[in-house]
Simulated assay, not measured.
Amino acid sequence: MSVATAPTTLDVSNTPAVPFGRLVRVELRKLADTRAGRWLLISIAALTLLVLIIQLSVVLGQGLHPKFLDFLQGMNTPMGVLLPVLGVLSVTSEWSQRTAMVTFTLEPSRVRVVAAKFVSILVISVLALVIGLILGSLANVVYGALSGDTVVWGSPAKYAAFYLLLYVFGMATGFAFGALFLNSPAGIVAYFVYSFVFPGLFEIAASLMDWFAKLQPWIDFNNDQNDLIDATIHGRGWAHLIVAGLIWLVVPLAIGIWRIRRAEVK
């Protein structure tokens, strides 16, 4: 007569968690490992350099007198458009490439994975700022050397802080849309609609309706960030930025994290 034996179970209670720093390094590597991410990073750097070269050529050819802030604003054109796309791709990669099963098996805590992804885009924002400041400074010095004019620096520390916020907001908003849709094309399209379609609609509505003109600064997160680009934000502008950021950044991000925690892994 055979004796029934109890099924054995695998005790993983004492298994150490994956260090958070390692998760961040993995997520940073993912941004450059894929073909889309790698070429997007290359495109951002190349277009930023190209824009500054064109801007430098124009100001020298037309005898203009730019300041350091003018070069930072020129640098923001490609970075402000393309960095958020990287933010979208950073959070949709598992779901678009069907690698979520592997990721969440190696690290079961989805919140930790999302947090690592978010920290990775903050790191990219800092790196983008450093590269932009170096290129902008170089353009300003070259302008002074070739034109013979006095180089105007203004307040570089204040500009750096404002542009860091600008890049963080851009990448975080892209990240939020990516988390909300969990699909790369949908997240990118939604971000571009928010960036290029809604501001125009808001302007039209504000010109036609006085009550909406008073409401617009509180809901137009994209437009509110223009004061960061110009380094003129103050007082009420910060209040507008915070309220609009809650609508377009915090709410989509919260819903997106809720979706990620409950989405079926395939």
Results as ranks from 00 to 15, higher is better:
F196P: 03
N222F: 09
W211C: 00
N226V: 05
A186N: 01
Y194F: 14
A205E: 02
S184A: 12
L180N: 11
D210C: 00
L182Y: 01
F175Q: 07
N226Y: 08
I219F: 02
F202K: 02
Y191T: 01
I229Y: 14
A206H: 00
S184L: 08
F212Q: 04
T232K: 05
A172N: 11
V197Q: 13
M171T: 11
G187Q: 05
N226E: 12
L215S: 01
T232Y: 01
N222T: 08
I219Q: 02
W211G: 01
D227A: 11
K214P: 08
G178A: 07
L228N: 15
I229H: 14
D210L: 08
E203Y: 14
V197F: 15
P199F: 05
N183T: 09
Q225T: 14
A205F: 12
F177H: 03
T173G: 07
V197Y: 14
G187F: 05
A206W: 00
V197K: 13
I204Y: 03
D210I: 08
D224K: 09
L182P: 00
A176Q: 10
V193L: 05
F175E: 02
F192R: 07
E203M: 14
K214H: 15
L182V: 00
V189L: 06
Y191A: 02
F221A: 06
W211Y: 02
D230V: 04
I204W: 04
F196E: 05
I204K: 04
I188E: 11
I219E: 01
K214W: 11
A206D: 00
M171Q: 12
F192N: 10
D227F: 07
L228E: 15
F212W: 06
K214I: 12
A231M: 15
N183D: 13
M209I: 07
A186R: 00
Y191H: 06
N226H: 09
P217F: 04
N183A: 10
F192Y: 14
L182N: 00
F221T: 00
Q216G: 00
F177M: 08
L182M: 02
I204H: 01
A172K: 10
F212H: 04
A179T: 07
E203S: 15
M209F: 12
L180C: 13
P185Q: 06
I188D: 10
L180V: 13
M209C: 04
N222K: 11
G174F: 06
K214V: 14
L182T: 00
F177L: 12
Y194H: 11
K214A: 15
W211L: 01
N223R: 09
F198A: 13
A213Y: 07
S207N: 14
A213L: 06
A231C: 15
W211F: 05
Q225W: 06
G187M: 06
F175K: 03
I204Q: 01
D230L: 13
A231Y: 15
D227S: 11
